[in-house]
């Protein structure tokens, strides 16, 4: 498919939805449809609105239409020796840039590089009033007005139809080396807390119950020095893609899969099911039929999301009543008719 500006068609569909008060189910490549609650609505497909609008590698900024395949964006960056440091997962070849922003999921590098939202510089959004507006921009620093662009990241399309996004990108590291250390989880987490306070070029850290998997990224000198210091067995870097895309055997079908986002440095945790530790402990995957995962995550100071479609009626962590009220008030202001993905995150929003 060729690059195409289909913004007007998207606007027309939103206008029709407004006129008929029909909710819209915003959809890109449907690669993350398993996340969140069911949405009843007419499908608004963003994929005709595609293409890289502007990319100048020396500016470290790329502007891209929401319906562009994520793989196409990543390939363009790769050609220029650059990358999206937050390493968003695709989950399917069909994944789009818009869906990547809406889901706001980041990969193994996230604790060191920042999240999807951290790399958002600007957006264009169709609002619930049927207006196509622009927020933020293509510059690194911009504090004019409220930061609606970063608000869009992770909002699952509930606040507007994202049509275009400008992202900060960075050069790929000069050197990348992955290693496996056969140490147990207790020792691994304690070492990670220690290493975290030192200028070591760690850019991914996962423990699967048996081994600690580390990725070192930086200049030749720092990576070599860190490798000499840490030792370990060489590891094929494809491990990180398999982890990110949930292709490791841990992620094979079975019990409901939960993602726990937790404070740094909690140490080993007893969880009601098999677990896989990522983000040096700040993200833990658990396979469990327990109905107490949200409460458990909250007791640790974090939150949980169910990644298995249909396993629970409320996949996202319930919000405190006051916070929920402000979510509803914000939704009511930006999408007064409740047209965009109603109930995708929470029944009330």
């Amino acid at each position: 498919m060729a690059d195409f500006d289909a913004a007007n068609a998207l606007l027309d569909q939103v206008d029709a939805a407004r006129a008929n008060a029909t909710p819209l189910k915003i959809q890109g490549g449907n690669s993350k449809a398993f996340l969140g609650r069911e949405v009843a609505g007419e499908v608004l497909d963003t994929r005709a609105h595609r293409g890289i609008v502007q990319y100048d590698p020396t500016e470290l900024v790329v502007t891209v239409r929401a319906g562009t395949p994520l793989s196409e964006l990543l390939a363009a960056l790769d050609d220029a020796g650059q990358m999206l440091p937050c390493e968003p997962p695709s989950f399917a070849d069909s994944a789009t840039v818009g869906g990547m922003i809406a889901a706001g999921l980041s990969g193994p590098r996230r604790p060191w590089s920042g999240s999807v939202r951290d790399f958002v510089l600007g957006t264009r959004v169709i609002t619930g009033l049927g207006q196509h507006l622009r927020f933020g921009g293509e510059v690194m620093k911009n504090v004019a007005g409220y930061d609606l662009s970063r608000l869009m990241a992770g909002s699952f399309g509930c606040l507007g139809v994202l049509t275009e996004v400008s992202l900060k990108v960075l050069p790929k590291p000069r050197q990348c080396l992955s290693i496996r250390l056969d140490i147990d989880c207790v020792r691994a987490l304690s070492k990670l807390a220690e290493w975290g306070q030192q200028p070591l070029p760690i850019s991914a850290a996962c423990h699967d119950g048996q081994s600690l998997y580390l990725r070192l990224e930086g200049g030749e000198g720092s990576v070599t020095a860190a490798h000499q210091r840490l030792g370990g067995e060489p590891l094929d870097s494809v491990f990180w893609r398999d982890l990110n895309e949930q292709r490791l055997s841990f992620f094979d079908e079975g019990l409901p899969l939960w993602r726990l986002s937790l404070p740094n440095n909690l140490g080993p945790l007893e969880l009601p099911g098999e677990q896989l530790i990522d983000w040096a402990g700040a993200q833990r995957w658990v396979k469990s039929e327990s109905t107490e995962i949200h409460a458990l995550a909250q007791s640790f100071g974090g939150h949980a999301t169910c990644f298995t479609h249909g396993a629970t009626g409320s996949p996202f962590q319930p919000l405190a009543p006051t916070l929920l009220r402000y979510h509803r008030q914000l939704k009511a202001q930006l999408d007064p008719q409740g047209l965009f993905n109603p109930g995708r995150m929470y029944a009330e929003v």
Binding site: G104, R110, P111, S115, R117, Y146, D147, L148, R150, L151, A153, G154, S155, C158, L159, S261, L262, P263, W279, A282, Q283, G301, G302, H303, T305, F316, Q317, P318, L319, L323, L324, Y326, H327, L330, M345, Y346
Partner: peptide
């Protein structure tokens, strides 16, 4: 934790 449930009101 590195992220939270709901909209990113911290960014807003």
């Amino acid at each position: 934790a590195l992220d939270s449930a709901g909209f990113d009101l911290l960014a807003l």
